[in-house]
Design a protein around this nucleic acid. Structure first.
Lengths: 177, 177
DNA sequence: AAATTTATGTCAATAGTGCTGACATATTTT
DNA sequence: AAAATATGTCAGCACTATTGACATAAATTT
């Protein structure tokens, strides 16, 4: 059969993969489906502006931390300067974001949303927030805390500090308490 | 000031967006960070094979539902035939997946993993499963149920049936009970 | 003051993943 | 025989991300 040359002639496995190797497929799949639908809400709005997810993310963090510098934004998003440039330029050209020369260090460009940028950020967040709210319907406030703890624990430890630096995310505190 | 022509001269907003409009920013952001780090684990392994996330998803579902047809796979992934084609072809050429002519309908191609494809699917799922396991450390089994319920509720209702059709995901049942 | 580092911007090329539209083939259904 | 279905394939385009190279201005170091 010459199964040694190309692996092409390998036999089909007909049994489904399951929990055999202690792999947590349920949550792996749920995260995939949940995130896909979670991002589909704003995607529809963005399409009207000829924007993509990258625009959304930038707009979001500039609204969450007005005055952050380009370097800080790159650090939060974990993308390269070149990837950011094009998208940020569009947001500036369309008047959603403005740049202000840094007061201490004049090389820096502080990024601020405009009223237009603030409005779009809110419009994009609204359906996502509603989806989360609906998903937590009937769940107690302790359930909300469980979900928050879980998601935060999924983040790489080095990056958890970043999350705490965002407004309203006091480390120990849980919304609704 | 001519703020009417281009929105270019709009004033910077210096206050951070917060919970003002009842938007749930904490969980929105947590989902972003959690999902990013969650997918970064397999991405590193995939890079060694010159594969991407698309390969991972296909490999995953072919392993979870061996024998599924191309049409079924398209339905689960919610992508187009043309998008699938390139990536699926690579997985077949590299001997990770084999096609078998449908027994009832000979137009159909049933997709099965090979031993090689099964092994890769497991290798990719392992770090994700470990991350989930670690994130649930110290949480009770009821916490796990809370997380599963939340994630499932985040998925569009029409699609929840699909999830239940995957092995080991009995609708009412929760792992660990 | 000169040299170096830092923050940002920009140009060019490339990759991965998705899309639409069009068309071909084999097979099943009507 | 005709129509519908399942799949495959070609061509072109869009978006997001990458790397490498280079430019400018401002701050820091020597």
């Amino acid at each position: 059969m010459n199964a040694d040359r190309a692996a092409a002639a390998s036999k089909p496995i007909k049994t489904a993969i399951s929990r055999e190797d202690g792999i947590d497929f349920s949550i792996i799949e749920l995260l995939f489906f949940a995130y896909r639908d979670f991002t589909s809400d704003p995607d529809q709005i963005l399409a009207e502006y000829d924007f993509g997810r990258a625009h959304h993310r930038i707009l979001h963090f500039v609204n969450r931390r007005p005055g952050l510098t380009v370097a800080e934004l790159l650090d939060v998003l974990k993308i390269t300067k070149q990837s950011l440039a094009r998208v940020l330029k569009q947001l500036i050209d369309t008047g959603h974001i403005v740049q202000v020369q840094g007061p201490r260090d004049r090389r820096q460009r502080e990024l601020y949303p405009t009223a237009k940028g603030r409005a779009l950020a809110l419009a994009l967040a609204r359906p996502q927030s509603r989806r989360i709210h609906d998903a937590l319907q009937g769940a107690g406030s302790s359930d909300r805390a469980v979900v928050e703890r879980f998601l935060k624990a999924m983040v790489n430890p080095e990056l958890r500090a970043q999350i705490d630096n965002l407004p309203g995310n006091v480390p120990g505190k849980v919304d609704g308490d």
